[in-house]
């Protein structure tokens, strides 16, 4: 555990909580892509199946349980409790174009051809692109609520901090995981355009809106 890994995890946790609170307090999931949230629920489920087979630490186990619980709670709020506010017409990204290639890649490129390992690999690849339906929705509507941009910033920052964590671990622990690193770079790059808008607009008190 190093400072980048810990702040990365906390940033990830903050993102998840911000989104849950936003939906809960406003009683609305307007502007939120339910498809991205389903993908994240799949990501956590397929990655954390090792909860049943291996114990790493209290920290590790509790964070996994919290992430999974929050992911399903978010999906429940969007598709059940506040379904009437869900903007399905604008959430039109075709997720099969992500899930199918990512599934194929996980079978072809992995550390070990075993059931749990392929699911772990699938979750790493899927996470790297799971935000695309949300970004697609924002580009379609041309705007995002400020609280939604805080969520996206924390979510993007988390993987960027993990990149620093992997650099740290490479130098000080001789540890590296090429699958996680490559997917993590892809994931972080996808946020770069958003980071630019967040810093130049949202942090200066303006609403995030895209030119028509």
């Amino acid at each position: 555990m190093n400072v980048f890994r810990l702040t990365g995890d906390l940033s990830h946790l903050a993102a998840i909580i911000i989104l849950l609170l936003k939906i809960w307090k406003s009683r609305s999931c307007a502007g939120i892509s339910g498809k991205s949230q389903i993908l994240f629920a799949i990501v956590f489920t397929t990655r954390y199946l090792d909860l049943l087979t291996s114990f790493i630490s209290i920290y590790n186990t509790s964070m996994k349980v919290i992430y999974i619980g929050c992911a399903y709670a978010t999906v429940y709020l969007i598709y059940m409790k506040f379904r009437a506010t869900y903007d399905g017409n604008h959430d039109s990204f075709r997720v099969e174009f992500l899930v199918v290639p990512v599934g194929g890649l996980a079978v072809l490129v992995n550390h070990d051809f075993s059931f749990l390992e392929i699911l772990w690999t699938f979750s790493i690849y899927l996470e790297s692109v799971a935000i695309l339906p949300q970004l697609f929705m924002i580009s379609k509507t041309g705007e995002a609520e400020t609280i939604t941009t805080h969520y996206l910033f924390c979510l993007g920052l988390y993987r960027a901090l993990y990149l620093l964590n992997w650099i740290w671990r490479f130098y000080f622990e001789s540890f590296f995981d090429m699958i996680a690193i490559v997917a993590g770079v892809v994931q972080t790059v996808l946020y770069c355009d958003f980071f630019y808008l967040y810093i130049t607009k949202v942090l200066k008190g303006k609403k995030l809106s895209l030119p028509a």
Binding site: N60, K64, H111, F170, S174, F176, M178, I179, A180
Partner: peptide
């Protein structure tokens, strides 16, 4: 460097 064996990250 070693390739990852156990996944200790989240």
């Amino acid at each position: 460097a070693d390739e990852a064996a156990a996944h200790d990250e989240l």
